[in-house]
Design a protein around this nucleic acid. Structure first.
Length: 455
RNA sequence: GCGGCAUUGGUGUAGCGGUUAGCACAGCAGAUUGUGGAUCUGUUAGCCCGGAUUCGAAUUCCGGAUGCCGCCCCA
């Protein structure tokens, strides 16, 4: 047992997991970009009040799961428990509420909650996140749900269902709250302790109670949908219609209310259905038209959704999806000569430039040991230097899987290696695109550009 | 945060008051003056931490830490 261990509820992502998370991130981020959501990055810590005012003092996330940090004697900071308030803060901080609306953002960050760890529930976990500020239309609600559904289809996740509900906007919800509170107050004695408290703090959560003794009362409670205003009902109808039109399946779940205070109208959860992970949410979100007002800013509608990257990763693994390529190097350089480290590096250089993943054995062990080690490190190809037959500008390229090899001129090593393993694409910085005027026009037989009669 | 169960080399485990704490895999070294995952030999490495009971504790008890399950809630 090691003397040191990761802090409670936190864990290390070893290379295989890290590679998986990177691969997922690449997919999510590219998809976000395609939907018009560029990435924004915010600090790991925020002032506590950023979350207290928005996520809500009565929410569990704030009331008992905030991971607080201090610098010297100063407190009032917390590791971010979720993305939305932080992004809204950054948005206001930068004056982006003056920019043309709506504004869309993607985020991918580690989140922290001081909860008791359990399967797929950590104190540090990673979320991808979409936020759209400044659009009141139900279509944006549809858009983020469609995005998420499409994302899961893209990565191959099948075992989940979409739960959808509406909780009304600020004005109508006041009436919903009053009506429900009044109803539950009449039957207070029959309620569980938690629910009794929630009647006063957040009555909607009583509907979500899992206490068996609350079931009859909850079942007999007035339905939220019946208490909403016409606009809320229309909004919800538009969301459902939009989803149905896109072929996105969902289940209306009247008891779904979610624990964050800022939600209005649409709330949605993507819940895993596999037996091992049943009931675990892999994404969740909704509309929060009141968020900016709670932050003291001018009113602005908003919609967002967040997904657990860890949950997604493990759910995919559980479904047998190969998330990422093995991060082990494909090529290993070994040598029979003890003191030729520089030569081994020179052999690796052109292969690396060509995109192959190459590791070097610098040891002076016997060749058989080095080859055995190369195999155990997962290499597919070995470059063998320093043997009698590989003298005078030659080297052996050996396919460790097929156990075939070829004495190869140095100039041909890259080509020869390419016959056995594929190079990885090299990431690049942005380069200017080719001049559109020089691109072939009307290649598909269409008129190159639409004419505007005003021109 | 509440309740329950668990914790033995790197990994998986045996041990159930007195054992040099056993085994398998992995690691390292050699047999093999050098083209490998085999075999054999050797070797490294462990009772989560602290206290108590006892002549004696990996084993019992109490605290703590961590993990898992349920609750709460959520990604």
């Amino acid at each position: 047992m090691a003397s040191y261990q990761a802090p409670r509820g936190m864990r290390d992502l070893l290379p295989e997991e890290a590679a998986g998370m990177d691969a997922l991130l690449a997919v999510v981020q590219a998809r976000a970009l395609r939907y018009g959501y560029p990435r924004m990055v915010t600090p790991v810590v925020e002032e506590r009040r950023v979350f207290i005012k928005t996520t809500g003092e009565s929410s569990d996330v704030v009331s008992k799961e905030m991971y607080e940090v201090r610098l010297g004697g100063e407190g009032d900071l917390a590791l971010r428990p979720e993305a939305t308030p932080a992004i809204a803060r950054a948005f206001l901080d930068a004056g982006l509420h003056r920019s043309p609306r709506p504004q869309r953002f993607f985020a991918y960050e580690a989140m922290f909650r001081g909860q008791r760890p359990q399967k797929l529930r950590y104190r540090q976990f990673w979320q991808w996140d979409l936020e759209c500020f400044g659009a009141p239309e139900a279509s944006v609600d549809v858009e983020i749900i469609d995005f998420t559904n499409g994302l899961f289809r893209e990565v191959g996740l099948t075992g989940y269902e979409i739960r959808l509900n509406t909780i009304g906007d600020d004005r109508c919800r006041a009436r919903v709250r009053e009506t429900l509170a009044a109803y539950f107050r009449r039957h207070l004695d029959a309620l569980s302790e938690v629910s009794k408290r929630r009647v006063e703090t957040n009555v909607l959560r009583v509907l979500d109670s899992k206490e068996p003794q609350d079931r009859p009362l909850v079942d007999g409670a007035p339905a939220i949908l019946d208490l909403l205003c016409d606009e809320d009902r229309r909004h919800f109808a538009d969301v459902r219609e939009g989803l149905t039109g896109l072929g996105v399946p969902f289940t209306v779940t009247p008891t779904l209310v979610r624990g964050l205070d800022y939600y209005t109208r649409t709330v949605v959860e993507f819940v895993l259905t596999a037996p091992e992970y049943e009931g675990i949410a892999v994404a969740g979100g909704g509309r929060y038209d009141g968020l900016f007002r709670t932050m003291g800013a001018e009113d602005m509608p908003g919609t967002g959704i967040a997904g657990g990257m860890d949950v997604l990763y493990y759910a995919l693994k559980q479904e047998g999806v190969a998330v990422a390529e093995d991060p082990k190097p494909d090529v290993y350089v070994v040598s029979a000569r003890p003191d030729d480290a520089a030569n081994r590096m020179q052999l690796a250089a052109p292969l690396r430039d060509a995109g192959f993943t190459v590791a070097i054995d610098y040891s002076t062990r016997p060749l058989d040991r080095q080859l055995e080690s190369a195999v155990k490190h997962g290499a597919k190809v070995a470059i063998i230097a320093g043997t009698p037959e590989a003298r005078g500008g030659y080297v052996i390229v050996r396919d460790l899987t097929k156990k075939e090899q070829r004495n190869t001129r140095l100039a041909a090593v890259v080509t020869e290696v390419g016959r056995h393993v594929r190079p990885r694409p090299l990431p690049t910085l942005w380069r200017p695109p080719a001049d559109p005027d020089q691109m072939e026009q009307g290649a598909a037989g269409e008129t190159p550009y639409l004419q505007d009669p005003r021109d």
